[in-house]
Amino acid sequence: MNLKLWITLAVGSVSTAAIAQDSNELVIEGETLVTETAAPAHLEDFDTIYSGWRFRSSETQALETDDFDNPAFVFVDQGLDLWEEVDGSAGKACASCHEDVEDFAGLRTKLPRVQDGELVAMEDLVNGCRTERMGAEPWKWSGGKMTAMTALIGLQSRGMPVGVKIDGEAAPFWEKGKELYYTRVGQLDMACSNCHENNYGVMIRADHLSQGQINGFPTYRLKNAKLNSIHARFKGCMKNIRAEPFKEGGDEFKALELYLASRGQGLSVETPSVRN
């Protein structure tokens, strides 16, 4: 066996990883977004974090730069209709109580967050209003109505830096998410970190591996032509390694969501982003 040769090859692939995202600048409707910034202090293994946008083909990238071309905006419009739509026993719409959806500017950057001792995601806030204040049925976590609404609300924070709280009450949730991130699962026995931390920038068959950031969610994927929630993406990655996914909206995925958000501190919110 030729161990030396193998080591040389391995080192070779590490150095390509460091330069493999492109150097394009993301400008949406005249506004420049941060797709690259210094890694937050808690990340020891790399210096710079990048949005997933930087790893996509130029055709896919272009779709996100113009709201008329961005196929996600069809769903944002559906979100606007839902915003006005009366539903539930209280006879109210979101708009009955919330004056303007623009008032949610900044909210996306801070979620998930701890509230009354529990970690809550945007979907929890929306469903909380539906069930407790409107007397309406909760929406399915990753269903079309929910993703349309989270896209509309997230869009109000577009361009603002991700900045979730990870200390204090949030710390135990963050630790749990971190542990999940580094735990190998599935018949293929891999952790999120194996692909998104150790191998970002290289091709895995037809896919260009990114850092697995969540600053652009919900994301319009060309693959399924709809908006995809954060938890649906986690589920997809787990199934690909033949692992039994955790429940969408469950404690594990929410903790993982907090941890991943914290790996992207400082990147601009890109909601609704476009990926393949």
């Binding site: 699962v185 018949q187 026995d189 891999m190 039994e244």
Partner: peptide
């Protein structure tokens, strides 16, 4: 390594039901 073990049928966590107890 990230490379999967192709001929083991245990020792991995949370496999999807269809793959539990099987080697790749």
């Amino acid at each position: 390594t990230i490379m999967p073990a192709f001929y083991i049928d245990s020792g991995y966590e949370r496999p999807l039901e269809d793959f539990a107890g099987k080697s790749i």
